[in-house]
Amino acid sequence: KKYKVVEVKENKDGTVELVVENENGEKKKITLSKEELDKLKAGDTVELK
Rank of each mutant, 00 (worst) to 15 (best):
1 K>C: 15
1 K>W: 09
1 K>E: 05
1 K>S: 09
1 K>T: 10
2 K>P: 04
2 K>N: 04
2 K>W: 11
3 Y>C: 02
3 Y>T: 00
3 Y>R: 00
3 Y>P: 00
4 K>L: 06
4 K>F: 04
4 K>H: 02
4 K>Q: 02
5 V>P: 00
5 V>T: 01
5 V>H: 01
5 V>M: 03
6 V>I: 10
6 V>K: 05
6 V>W: 10
6 V>E: 01
6 V>H: 05
7 E>T: 12
7 E>K: 07
7 E>L: 09
7 E>D: 11
8 V>M: 10
8 V>Q: 04
8 V>K: 04
9 K>W: 12
9 K>Y: 12
10 E>S: 06
10 E>L: 08
10 E>W: 10
10 E>D: 12
10 E>N: 09
10 E>Y: 10
11 N>M: 10
11 N>C: 14
11 N>Y: 09
11 N>H: 09
11 N>I: 06
12 K>N: 12
12 K>F: 10
12 K>G: 13
12 K>L: 11
13 D>W: 05
13 D>N: 09
13 D>G: 03
13 D>R: 02
14 G>E: 01
14 G>A: 02
14 G>C: 05
14 G>R: 02
14 G>F: 02
14 G>Q: 02
14 G>V: 00
15 T>H: 04
15 T>K: 04
15 T>Q: 05
15 T>M: 08
16 V>H: 05
16 V>F: 13
16 V>A: 09
16 V>Y: 13
16 V>Q: 02
16 V>M: 11
17 E>T: 11
17 E>N: 07
17 E>V: 11
17 E>A: 09
17 E>D: 10
17 E>I: 09
18 L>P: 00
18 L>C: 09
18 L>R: 00
18 L>T: 01
18 L>E: 00
18 L>V: 11
18 L>D: 00
18 L>W: 03
19 V>P: 00
19 V>I: 09
19 V>T: 10
19 V>K: 03
19 V>W: 11
20 V>P: 00
20 V>Q: 00
21 E>M: 08
21 E>D: 02
21 E>Y: 06
21 E>V: 12
21 E>P: 00
21 E>R: 05
21 E>I: 08
21 E>W: 05
21 E>S: 06
22 N>P: 01
22 N>H: 07
22 N>V: 07
23 E>Y: 08
23 E>M: 07
23 E>I: 07
24 N>S: 10
24 N>P: 01
25 G>K: 04
25 G>Q: 03
25 G>M: 04
25 G>A: 03
26 E>H: 08
26 E>D: 09
26 E>L: 09
27 K>L: 13
27 K>E: 04
27 K>F: 13
27 K>Q: 12
27 K>V: 09
28 K>E: 08
28 K>L: 15
28 K>H: 14
28 K>I: 14
29 K>M: 14
29 K>Q: 12
29 K>F: 14
29 K>T: 14
29 K>P: 03
30 I>W: 14
30 I>G: 01
30 I>V: 10
31 T>E: 04
31 T>F: 12
31 T>A: 04
31 T>K: 08
31 T>W: 14
32 L>P: 01
32 L>H: 01
32 L>F: 13
32 L>V: 08
32 L>D: 00
32 L>K: 02
32 L>N: 01
33 S>I: 07
33 S>G: 09
33 S>M: 14
33 S>E: 07
33 S>Q: 12
33 S>P: 13
33 S>K: 14
34 K>Y: 12
34 K>M: 13
34 K>G: 14
34 K>R: 14
34 K>I: 13
35 E>S: 13
35 E>L: 13
35 E>N: 14
35 E>V: 12
35 E>H: 14
35 E>I: 12
36 E>I: 12
36 E>Q: 10
36 E>M: 11
36 E>W: 15
37 L>D: 04
37 L>E: 03
37 L>I: 13
37 L>C: 15
38 D>N: 13
38 D>H: 13
38 D>S: 13
38 D>G: 15
38 D>W: 12
39 K>L: 09
39 K>H: 11
39 K>I: 07
39 K>S: 11
39 K>P: 12
39 K>E: 13
40 L>C: 09
40 L>I: 14
40 L>Y: 15
41 K>P: 04
41 K>D: 05
41 K>I: 08
41 K>S: 07
42 A>E: 11
42 A>P: 15
42 A>N: 10
42 A>L: 14
42 A>F: 06
43 G>A: 04
43 G>C: 09
43 G>V: 04
43 G>R: 03
43 G>E: 04
43 G>K: 03
44 D>M: 05
45 T>M: 08
45 T>N: 06
45 T>G: 02
45 T>A: 02
45 T>S: 04
45 T>L: 13
46 V>T: 05
46 V>I: 14
46 V>E: 09
46 V>R: 01
46 V>L: 14
47 E>I: 11
47 E>G: 03
47 E>N: 10
47 E>T: 05
47 E>S: 06
47 E>L: 05
47 E>Q: 06
47 E>V: 04
47 E>M: 05
48 L>F: 05
48 L>V: 15
48 L>N: 07
48 L>G: 07
48 L>S: 05
49 K>A: 15
49 K>V: 15
49 K>D: 15
49 K>H: 15
49 K>R: 08
49 K>F: 03
